[in-house]
């Protein structure tokens, strides 16, 4: 599987603690500026497809603007309602020269999500161990 880092936006264009929609090919991705890091997930709530980029950020989670599902942006799993097995795909991020980069492995379809986090500019990239999101609910 070939991984590709794509420069998606200037970091300044994503306001602190807000999300923005980035369209790559035919895929809509929500990127979030959490201050110390940027996180990216599929811009589609597993509930009714709500635009996660438009949600309110709470900690490392976002709350979907349509019906209030809460999604963990690190791992993509649903925090609320509890015990919901569905999850959204996450994308690894990193910051280089004031630009945000996303790691896109395959644009057409995506298998099990990976947990990745980018630290702010100048820091080292920290990649968490790849695990299916379902497991994370119990961790």
């Amino acid at each position: 599987m070939s991984n590709e880092w794509i420069r998606v936006a200037y970091c300044d264009d994503i306001p602190l603690r807000e999300g923005r929609e980035v369209v790559i090919g035919n895929r809509s991705i929500a990127v979030f500026n959490l201050g110390a890091k940027f996180l990216a997930v599929d811009n589609r709530c597993p509930h009714r497809g709500g635009p996660l980029a438009d949600g309110i950020v709470t900690g490392d989670n976002v709350v979907c603007p349509l019906h209030g599902w809460k999604i963990d942006l690190q791992h993509g799993n649903v925090q609320r309602p509890a015990e919901t097995p569905a999850c959204v795909k996450t994308f690894a991020t990193k910051v280089e020269a004031g630009m945000l980069l996303l790691e896109i492995s395959e644009l057409a379809s995506c298998p099990a999500s990976t947990g990745h986090a980018a630290v702010a500019e100048g820091g080292s990239l920290e990649t968490s161990k790849e695990r299916p999101c379902e497991d994370l609910r119990f961790s």
């Binding site: 794509i6 420069r7 998606v8 936006a9 200037y10 300044d12 264009d13 994503i14 306001p15 923005r20 929609e21 980035v22 369209v23 790559i24 090919g25 035919n26 990127v31 630009m99 896109i104 644009l107």
Partner: peptide, 17 residues
Amino acid sequence: QTATQFVQITPLQEVLA
């Protein structure tokens, strides 16, 4: 309020679909 208040961001580099 911000440059991207209403916009959908398109990647800075061309992406081959």
